[in-house]
Amino acid sequence: MILARFLLLSLFLLLYGPLQAQGSSNNAIQAGSELLRKADTLENQARKLIQQGSKRRKDIKQQRQTVLRLPPGPEKTALEQRLEQAIAESLGTQRDGAELRKQAAALREQALDHFADGLRQQWPAWATKRQSIQLSDGFSDVPALGGHNVRMRSVHPSKKDLAGAPETQQSNDMSLALPRLSAQQLPPQLNTDSFTFSRDRRFIGHIEVLPESVRSDDGRIEINELHQWVLVLSDLNGEPVSDAAIEFTGHMPGHVHGLPTQPEVTEELAPGIYRISGLKFQMRGWWVIELLVSASSDAADQQDSLRFNLHL
């Protein structure tokens, strides 16, 4: 009897131990946090430099007006030379700012890698994939598959050429020319990461198909079929964000239409793990999913946002 209880307890600990440990951030998340802090510091410096540069440019513009009004002479020449120098300096400042900003972005990407690793360690059942949602037919990676595309709600007969015509693009191993997004180009390297920082960098979110909601074994979805996702929502310390209010929207850039259904968060499966139900895609192409998130402690009007790109 005692042995049985002991076994049960061990089993319990074995199963729930990792869940208990979820609260404490793991090394990867710590590393991610550090990188993100560094990135933010760099970003701030970059912003300052860019602002400085812009201010200098404004001053220079004014000074140039003054110089222009001066009669020709040594004073004008000297001032002109000084202006040239100032222009070069301001350009340098802006370049430095841009460079820092690039470094910050790279650091953020690295940070996201660490966070993704950390969250996958922390929630191995819910966070397994790095690639966002794909179709089961195996053609999600074909860049040429775009879908129809319009950039305006309706085209007045006199302006119909504004809409342009759909373009087609061939893929290396396909001879079929498939429609390409014409009005709103699919970016050449669309980021389809299933992990993302929120806009205000308060959260990190991950989306994944709930495997039991689809027909395929590998968690890929069928076109035109309802299915469910899980959203893993964590703060930047790796703590799950519970009881969040989440609004779900999705649209196709360049199309005026959105999703054919109104998906909703229907359940919090575990702390910070949300079930999203009622998802369906009626078209291939580039989809943007936006989740508007308010933590339970947030003010009524405070809303952060998680954006994911899908290329179906």
Partner: peptide, 27 residues
């Protein structure tokens, strides 16, 4: 080829029944 490509029919007329069963305004 046109159906799948330039004419973009396959955007909505997809799958074995050539339909996404959803609703569109084609004017």
């Amino acid at each position: 080829r046109l159906f799948m490509g330039k004419a973009a029919c396959a955007s909505c007329h997809n799958g074995p029944l050539f339909s996404n069963f959803e609703f569109h305004n084609i004017g």
